[in-house]
Design a protein around this nucleic acid. Sequence first.
DNA 1: TCCTCCATGTAAAAGGTTACATGATTTG
DNA 2: CAAATCATGTAACCTTTTACATGGAGGA
Lengths: 185, 185
Amino acid sequence: MVTTAASLLEYALLGLILQGPASGYDLRKLFASTPMGTFSDSPGAIYPALRRLARRGWIAAGAAARGGRRRRLFSATAAGRRALGDWIGLDPTRDDVVRNWDALMLRLAFMTGNAPPARVTAFLAALELELLRYVAELEAFLAASGGALTGSGRLAFESGLAGYKAQALWLRRALAPSRKTRRAS
Amino acid sequence: MVTTAASLLEYALLGLILQGPASGYDLRKLFASTPMGTFSDSPGAIYPALRRLARRGWIAAGAAARGGRRRRLFSATAAGRRALGDWIGLDPTRDDVVRNWDALMLRLAFMTGNAPPARVTAFLAALELELLRYVAELEAFLAASGGALTGSGRLAFESGLAGYKAQALWLRRALAPSRKTRRAS
DNA sequence: TCCTCCATGTAAAAGGTTACATGATTTG
DNA sequence: CAAATCATGTAACCTTTTACATGGAGGA
């Protein structure tokens, strides 16, 4: 069964709710006060997204009434857990690397606890492959037509390249333990 | 006069057209075959965006008919040049760093040729300030509640941090020449 | 009581994605 | 001539942004 994909915000909300029931307001605060701040904390995005998740049957609202204050606590359903698992199971593509890096990192962030531990290293290894391929592409571009880059244009390009290379280094470090294990075994 | 902001895609198109007249197809090919590939090359995005730019008076379509093939060549207007200059003149904010890094790099890329050379170093210096501030925030978060980060969650966080640190390093390198000059003067 | 924060929502507008449509022109 | 490519577009759908709206709870 292939469930149609949800938006990145929806997956972010689903993943957070899977770590424990939460209200829309809780989630907004989370986005406003943690490194998850890359997501918008605007109610006009979050409440409709929660409703969509509920309509899909991935989360469900429980009656709260704790303390008397009006609050809608959402919990994840079994279908929700499965949906996140499916999403996490997607392999990184070139397009992910170029245009959806955020989605890759969100999938990674939610892996522990929602997928078998081996999934993490498999994901990282596949990501390293795609990333190194793309870095090679960028360097080929630089070699071929880098001379045409003007002053600040070149700077911007170098910023991008430096960013991708830093991720490659991070990946090598993150994969080092598992590689050592494999070599030793 | 404050012109209302345009979308990032619109600024990308405007900046490219400022470097020389281009058709929608030219721009699509550019997005499909260069590191500008972070932008979508879908006609459903580009052609409407070009029409919006034309309606604003930032670009204008010239009759082409070169070779007989049907092509609409767009050229930038004086108003377009001014609009891009205004946009480039915006200083980097925290929000830019956290959620609009792409826009920052696009502004930087278009600076040479569309703004006085001093603008580049001023921009980079302001960016360095915001970036270092944000990196400090992230490290404070790690120190305060980093223990709560689960396995793969921690990895994702570290990836982000590594990325920002790499940009900080890139910025220091990019600013090194101008700092040396200032020290010497 | 007044103000602030908690908490949830709605409505309009705009932009992008996806998919489809259409013709002209090279190229094999 | 057929197929691929050039070149431009349109329409439906979905999500996000922005701004506004509402009402209860708690503190000064």
